[in-house]
Nucleic acid binder design. Structure first.
Length: 110
DNA sequence: GTTCTCACA
DNA sequence: TGTGAGAA
């Protein structure tokens, strides 16, 4: 499989974003969602955070930040927290399945 | 700086 | 559903 230059750049960017982890303060600052609310959502199971090494501080990666922004919008559109959570989970599931199919095709043809 | 918990609306 | 305050 070969990639053109722009695709390579896109993949590098994605890799970079995946490793980008920030504290709750940064996330709150960027997304505009109060820290209290972010932890609240985590408790409800809407978002999953990573614990950093020995410390107990939560770290938020690209997916988490994206998810928080998504929940924020969904809630703003009148969804309940639960409904928003389901919608997001379903979408993630669809994306995962789509890529799985793609991987299967590539695997069988190569 | 972050975490948790109890209480309240 | 979301917040405030105090303690660690």
């Amino acid at each position: 499989m070969e990639f053109d230059e722009s695709t390579v750049h896109a993949l590098l960017d994605f890799d970079l974003l995946s490793k980008l982890v920030v504290g709750i303060g940064e996330v709150s600052d960027i997304t505009g969602v109060p820290q209290r609310q972010i932890r609240y959502w985590e408790d409800k199971g809407i978002i999953r955070t990573i614990k950093d090494g020995e410390g107990t501080t939560r770290k938020y990666d690209y997916m988490n930040i994206k998810k928080i922004l998504l929940v924020k919008e969904l809630l703003d559109d009148g969804y309940t927290l639960d409904a928003a959570a389901r919608k997001i989970e379903d979408r993630l599931k669809l994306v995962d399945e789509a890529f799985k199919k793609l991987a299967d095709r590539k695997g069988s043809t190569e």
